[in-house]
Computed example of a mutant assay.
Amino acid sequence: MSATETDVPVDERLCVALYQAAHAMESAHRPLLRAHGLTYPQFTVLAVLDQEGAASVTAVGRRLGLTSSTLSPLLQRLEQQGRVERARSTQDERSVLVSLTAEGRRVAAAVRDVPVRITAAGGLAADEQAELVATLRRLVERLRDADVTADLPSGTPAV
């Protein structure tokens, strides 16, 4: 790694900018979702189910990049609120399907305009937003495929 790469001020690093952007995005959503008793992760699950209908828990997790350890309690809470229901697949008993209840469909419809409002607040043109999303998807894919520990000296713990 060159000295110029390690000397980048913290507030100019990609990781910090992405963290700040994610925090700002979630914060912008919060007041719009609070009125409906939703957290941001719950909102994303409802949005997937609203668009696609019933889906396996695995498929929902894959779409949102969530692990089952994150998704399971989230779904449990939505189920307790009467917004989703889970059932074993009749084709594959190992698979659990999740779908919106009538209440879930009502809430999903009520928050359908949230992405439009957030996009407008962000001030990006449609082509800028599409380019940013494509760039972020490439970054996520590359980071998932990367072995960031490959050049660590032997015996160095990967934290």
Results as ranks from 00 to 15, higher is better:
95 S>K: 03
38 L>Q: 06
26 E>V: 15
53 G>T: 08
86 R>C: 10
27 S>Q: 11
9 P>H: 01
57 V>C: 10
53 G>L: 03
27 S>N: 04
24 A>I: 02
84 V>A: 01
76 Q>P: 06
89 S>H: 05
23 H>A: 14
49 L>H: 02
21 A>F: 06
48 V>E: 06
24 A>D: 15
61 G>W: 05
79 E>H: 09
35 A>M: 08
10 V>H: 07
49 L>E: 00
15 C>Y: 12
44 T>W: 06
82 G>D: 10
29 H>E: 08
34 R>F: 08
53 G>N: 01
55 A>D: 05
9 P>K: 12
26 E>S: 13
27 S>D: 08
32 L>Q: 01
82 G>K: 00
31 P>V: 09
64 L>D: 07
53 G>F: 04
34 R>T: 12
89 S>I: 10
51 Q>A: 15
39 T>G: 05
47 A>G: 10
66 L>C: 09
43 F>V: 03
40 Y>I: 01
65 G>Q: 02
57 V>T: 11
50 D>C: 05
50 D>I: 00
51 Q>L: 04
36 H>M: 12
22 A>H: 08
74 L>Q: 04
63 R>Y: 10
83 R>S: 10
70 T>M: 02
45 V>Q: 04
95 S>C: 15
47 A>Y: 00
11 D>E: 09
94 R>V: 08
58 T>M: 15
96 V>G: 04
9 P>I: 05
71 L>V: 03
42 Q>L: 00
35 A>Y: 06
76 Q>V: 13
70 T>Y: 12
96 V>W: 02
41 P>I: 05
30 R>I: 12
38 L>S: 02
66 L>H: 04
56 S>V: 04
14 L>E: 14
69 S>V: 11
37 G>Y: 03
79 E>K: 10
97 L>G: 05
58 T>L: 11
95 S>M: 14
59 A>E: 05
33 L>S: 12
80 Q>T: 10
92 D>G: 06
91 Q>W: 01
85 E>G: 15
97 L>P: 01
32 L>V: 03
70 T>P: 00
19 Y>L: 13
35 A>H: 10
57 V>D: 11
13 R>T: 14
19 Y>D: 11
18 L>C: 13
51 Q>M: 09
64 L>A: 07
13 R>M: 14
89 S>P: 02
23 H>Q: 14
52 E>M: 14
61 G>V: 04
22 A>L: 08
49 L>Q: 01
62 R>C: 09
80 Q>A: 14
86 R>Y: 09
79 E>R: 07
60 V>F: 03
32 L>N: 04
65 G>H: 05
46 L>R: 07
59 A>S: 01
45 V>D: 04
76 Q>Y: 09
70 T>R: 01
50 D>F: 03
54 A>M: 00
17 A>G: 00
15 C>K: 11
78 L>P: 04
58 T>S: 14
35 A>G: 12
60 V>N: 00
37 G>L: 08
60 V>G: 07
65 G>W: 04
73 P>S: 11
35 A>C: 09
72 S>D: 12
39 T>Q: 10
83 R>I: 10
74 L>M: 07
26 E>C: 10
38 L>G: 06
74 L>E: 02
25 M>C: 15
16 V>R: 09
88 R>S: 15
46 L>P: 00
70 T>I: 06
97 L>V: 01
55 A>H: 10
30 R>N: 12
22 A>T: 13
11 D>L: 07
72 S>W: 03
83 R>Y: 13
37 G>W: 08
25 M>P: 08
79 E>V: 02
20 Q>G: 02
90 T>S: 12
96 V>P: 00
75 L>I: 07
